[in-house]
Design a protein around this nucleic acid. Structure first.
Lengths: 139, 139
DNA sequence: TATTTATCCTATCGGATTAATAGACTTTGC
DNA sequence: GCAAAGTCTATTAATCCGATAGGATAAATA
């Protein structure tokens, strides 16, 4: 299940990507447009900025804006920042791998094998879809 | 992310499916073989029984066993019992649909569209894989 | 320089969920 | 009747989630 954090983050990115220029947009503008708690959105945008996908400008006329690379970044990248692992189980995660303490041998674990399939499929979608493609209705 | 409940449940089903006969197996046997807390497994098997996938027998020589239909049941069914919705967001769930309170219009929501793709892909795997196929190493 | 406007950052909170445990009960086989 | 096994309810401890509060900091402008 997608956390609200991720959902809100993706919606905010979509909002920014739908704009034609990349002038700073205030948090309050986005939060009203997308019905997101302003304070919560604040922390979400902050983490996207720290991850290098958004720029920000303080003070009057400030706000958040997309960086150049961001439009061509796959959704998978945002997902990992906001949600964490894409895999359903840490032992099949590429970026957040962790061994199961049960499970003597991964190679013979049925759950492991199935979840690799699921991961590969999900990943193929999230990796191939860039933010630009993600946005369907440029308004 | 898969909860332990689901993971344990699938491993227990796999354990049972790997057996040749469908004689009752005690919880303690499964929990030792698969390194699962016995009491926790207890409640998991109970819910699989109530859902109609396992049979049980009380008393001496008792335990849990697969029902006939269970080997040919897709993993998706167990997943829904143990974990809940397969969709990443309730608004794209087939069996657990729920409207988002933000989001005035699902048809123009970018997150919605993407998550439908992810759901369809995941679903295709979980629906086409039966318990029998799930088990890779009949021991 | 003072004021306003905005992000930045840390801390905290209530509620929900998760994983696990405890213990009393019920049924079954011998 | 006794022991072995599942059944059921309740509780707990820990973690996470979504949201909020409030001050610090920085930038623009008058």
């Amino acid at each position: 299940m997608l956390s609200r954090k991720t959902k809100y983050g993706l919606k905010a990115l979509s909002y920014l990507a739908r704009r034609e220029n990349d002038e700073p947009v205030q948090i309050s503008t986005i939060s009203e447009a997308e019905n997101i708690s302003q304070k919560f959105l604040e922390s979400i945008l902050l983490s996207l900025r720290k991850a290098g996908y958004l720029g920000s400008k303080k003070g009057k006329g400030g706000g958040y804006y997309l960086l150049e690379r961001t439009r061509s970044t796959p959704i998978a990248a945002f997902y990992r920042i906001l949600e964490g692992p894409i895999a359903m189980v840490p032992c099949v995660s590429l970026n957040f791998y962790e061994r199961c303490n049960d499970c003597p041998d991964e190679s013979t674990c049925d759950v492991h094998s199935l979840m690799i399939q699921v991961r590969d499929n999900t990943l193929s979608i999230l990796e191939k879809t860039t933010l630009e493609e993600f946005v369907q209705n440029p308004s």
